[in-house]
């Protein structure tokens, strides 16, 4: 029997980790967030045009990051999403492992909860291990980060290591104030493309 309330006392706070990654990433980092909490986390860290924050499309953050990473091999692409979004699209880990984009890092902020819907337990609160699933899918670099020391150690690998990599970051199950980016998807898309592609990003 697993303890599905253990995440209530995980030491890492998701907003701190998002801020640490965002501040360390620099101008070369392109960020795709999943819907829900990781969107609010990275918006709090620094709402900017190099972030494409999903407001929906559950299960889509990882394949969206894959398409972007393949299109822009000279840029580092970071997908920051949650355990529930990852679980909905587990097959996409096998798709990533076929393409092997060395510029793609996936960070799974794993609070073992469906955060937007009442903090119900996900499968990771029970027996599912996303890092192990990623490794078994063929992702060459995987790890689980549980405290600040492990996060500090992993950070260079997250930002500059040879990918594809999947890091599961166990974060406290906590309900935080919303910090919302613009929600007009066409605007979010266009500002990202213009920042990345200049005038050719304008259709």
């Amino acid at each position: 029997m697993t303890d599905s309330s253990r995440a209530d006392s995980f030491p890492l706070h998701r907003r701190d980790i998002a801020k640490q990654i965002f501040d360390s990433g620099g101008e070369n980092l392109l960020i795709v967030t999943g819907l829900g909490s990781t969107n609010w986390d990275f918006t709090a860290a620094g709402d900017c045009e190099r972030i494409f924050p999903l407001w929906g499309a559950m299960g889509g953050a990882i394949p969206l990051g894959l398409g972007l990473a393949m299109a822009r091999p000279e840029k580092r692409v970071l997908v920051a999403t949650g355990d529930a979004d990852t679980l909905m699209g587990l097959g996409s880990l096998t798709t990533v492992a076929v393409q092997m984009p060395d510029n793609l890092t996936i960070t799974v902020f794993d609070n073992e909860r469906y955060g937007e819907t009442g903090m119900q337990a996900t499968a990771t609160a029970h027996n599912a291990d996303i890092a192990a699933i990623a490794a078994a899918s063929g992702i060459p670099v995987t790890g689980t980060i549980r405290d600040q020391e492990e996060m500090d150690t992993a950070l260079p690998e997250v930002l500059e290591g040879r990918g594809p990599a999947v890091f599961v970051i166990k974060v406290r199950a906590e309900k935080l104030p919303f910090v919302l980016p613009p929600k007009d998807g066409a605007y979010l898309k266009d500002r990202f493309r213009i920042a990345l592609l200049g005038d050719t990003g304008i259709v």
Binding site: P63, G91, V98
Partner: peptide
């Protein structure tokens, strides 16, 4: 051309969004 076999078709929709964000057509 990069060819990508998918586990499920919905991944393909999201991938094409990512490709377009990066300036490619798929």
């Amino acid at each position: 051309i990069r060819t990508v076999p998918l586990a499920s078709e919905e991944e393909g929709i999201a991938m094409l969004a990512g490709a377009w964000l990066g300036g490619q057509r798929g």
